[in-house]
Design a protein around this nucleic acid. Structure first.
Lengths: 273, 273
DNA sequence: TCAAGTAGAGAACATTGTTCGTGACACGAA
DNA sequence: TTCGTGTCACGAACAATGTTCTCTACTTGA
C-alpha cells in the first residue's frame, strides 16, 4: 500500500528513475520493473527452476506457515532444491517477497463501479483486510513495502474515479488511497502480531484488570473499562473504517481549514485533574 | 500503542493473567509486570552491570544508529561487556526492546488539559509522531508491541477525559486511542522504511512517471498525478490526522448507522455505542 | 563426437539471538 | 588471615538467517 509516496522511493523504481531514458512508454500496462529475466543461451539445459515455480513455492510456504517462515532455505526445500539455486531467478529475498505479495494481492477483488464512493472505499478496504486475514504474515510483509502491481494500480484508478464522481475534492481523493491502505495494513498487522483478541474470557479478564486500576488516578479508564475492550477485531476494524469515511465525507460540506495547532515543543506538565 | 487490545494479549501480561491471584492491587501505579529483578545474595560482587545501564546503552545505540542496530552484541559492545552478560539482567531481546520503547515514549509530553478534545488529540498525535521521527527505528519497534508504561496510561486517561468532556460518545472515546496510536505509529513506520520522500526533484520525477501512464487506462491517476505526490510528509500526516478528528467529530452530530455494505462475506455487525 | 556454457549443489561467510560451562573475584565466616 | 561460597561476566558454541563463490555435471548445438 502507501500507493504513490512509497512507490517512488522503492529501490527498484529508484533504479529506474535514475535512468532518464527508461520511461515506460504509454500504451503498456504499468508493471514494476522486475528485471533480470533469466537468459537462455547456447547449450542451455532445461531448467527445473523458474521464477513461477519459486513464487508458487514461496506462496505455499506463506500459506502453510505464515510470513515469518518465508526464508530462502524453506522455499528451496519446498521445491527440493538448494537455496543458492534460487538466486539464479530472483535477485534477493526482497524481490521474492515483492513477487509473493503481488500474487496474493491480486486475489482481492475490486468492488464494482457505480456503487458510490463510500461503498467503494469500504468494500475495497474490507477485501484487502479479508485478504490479509486469510494470509497471516502478509500484512507484516507489505508494511513499508510497495505491493503495487498492475492489479493494485487498476484498483487505485477506479477508486479515484469513484471518489471524484462522488464529489470528493481532488486533493482529498488523491490522499485517500495512502491513508486507507495504511490503515488496513497496519490494523491487519497489529492483529497478526498480537496473538489473539477474540476469546471472550480473555476480554473479560482485561476489563477486570482495567476496572481494578486506582479510581482516583484513572477515573475514565475505569469507567470505560468495558467499552475499551468491547467488540471483536472485525467490529473495531469497521469502526475505524467508518471514522475514515466520515472524515473524508466531511470535506464535501466543510472545506479544509487551517487546523488549530497546539504549540509543538512544550514543557511536560503534571496531570492536573 | 494499540492501547488496550494489544495490551492484554502481550506475553508478559498473558503470564500475569494466567495467575489469578496476581492482580495488581488498586492504589499502586500500573506498571507492566517486568519480573526477574536481579537477586543479590551472599558473596555478591559489585555488579558492573544493571538493567538501567543496559537500557541506557540500548537507548544510546538506537539514538545513534536506529532501531535496526539494536542487537544484543551491539548493546554489549557499547557497555564494554560480552553479549551473554546481558542475559543476567534482561530475559531476552524482546524485554530489552520493551524497556527501551518505554523509556523513549516517556519523553513525549502530553498536552495540557482544558484545551478541547480536538486540540488534545491533535497535540498528542503530533508529539508522538515527532518523537518517532526524532528516534528513527522506534516506530517499527512499537508496531505490534505494547509500549504502554505508566506515562502512556496517564496520557490515555487524560485523553479519555478530554474526549468525554467534549461530548464524544463513550464508545467512540474508548476506541479513539487505539485508532490514533495505530495511525501515528504506522505512518511513522512507513516514513522510516521508505528511505526518502521529501526531495523535490524526486517528487517531480514521480509525478512525471504517473503522468506518463496510458491515459485511456488511468485517466484519473494521470489527471491527479501532481496531487498524488503533493505535500511533505508532515503535511500528509496532518491531513490524515484531520480526517481522523473530523471523523470522530461526526459522531457528535450524526449517530452511528449501519454502513451500507458492498455484498461480501462480512458477517460482522456495526459497532453500536 | 565434442566443446561450450549453464544449472544447480555444496560449502562457506557474516550476522543474528541464545545457551552453557568455566574462571575469577568479592564477601562473609572460620 | 585464610578459605569457601556464590555470583558475575566471559568466551565458545549452536542454530538459523541471507548471500556469495566455486565446482561438477549435464544438455545442447555444431
Amino acid at each position: 500500500m502507501f500507493y504513490y509516496r512509497t512507490l517512488f522511493s522503492s529501490s527498484t523504481l529508484l533504479g529506474m528513475a535514475h535512468d532518464p531514458g527508461d520511461r515506460p512508454d504509454a500504451g503498456t500496462a504499468p508493471e514494476p520493473p522486475w528485471r533480470s529475466s533469466p537468459r537462455r543461451g547456447r547449450g542451455a539445459p532445461r531448467p527445473q527452476l523458474s521464477r513461477e515455480v519459486i513464487v508458487a513455492a514461496a506462496f505455499k510456504v506463506v500459506e502453510a506457515a505464515g510470513g515469518d517462515a518465508l526464508t530462502m532455505r524453506r522455499v528451496a526445500e519446498e521445491i527440493g532444491v538448494s537455496a543458492s539455486a534460487l538466486y539464479g531467478y530472483v535477485a534477493n529475498k526482497e524481490e521474492l517477497v515483492q513477487l509473493v505479495i503481488e500474487q496474493i494481492i491480486e486475489e482481492a477483488p475490486v468492488p464494482p463501479d457505480g456503487i458510490g464512493w463510500q461503498d467503494f472505499v469500504r468494500g475495497f478496504a474490507r477485501e484487502m483486510f479479508g485478504m490479509f486475514r486469510r494470509h497471516p504474515g502478509v500484512a507484516g510483509l507489505t508494511l513499508g513495502r510497495v505491493p503495487l502491481g498492475p492489479a493494485m494500480m487498476a484498483g487505485a484508478e477506479r477508486m479515484l474515479a469513484a471518489l471524484r464522481a462522488g464529489g470528493v475534492p481532488d486533493q482529498v481523493a488523491a490522499y485517500v488511497g495512502d491513508l486507507g491502505s495504511l490503515y488496513v495494513a497496519a490494523y491487519a498487522y497489529e492483529l497478526e502480531v498480537s496473538p489473539l483478541t477474540e476469546p471472550a474470557e480473555f476480554t473479560a479478564q482485561a476489563a477486570a484488570w482495567l476496572r481494578s486500576l486506582p479510581r482516583e488516578q484513572f477515573p475514565n479508564t475505569v469507567a470505560l473499562a468495558d467499552l475499551l475492550v468491547a467488540g471483536t477485531a472485525d467490529d473495531r476494524f469497521e469502526w475505524g473504517l467508518d471514522v475514515l469515511v466520515r472524515g473524508i465525507a466531511s470535506y464535501l460540506t466543510e472545506p479544509p481549514t487551517a487546523q488549530a495547532r497546539w504549540p509543538r515543543v512544550m514543557p511536560t506538565q503534571p496531570p492536573s485533574p
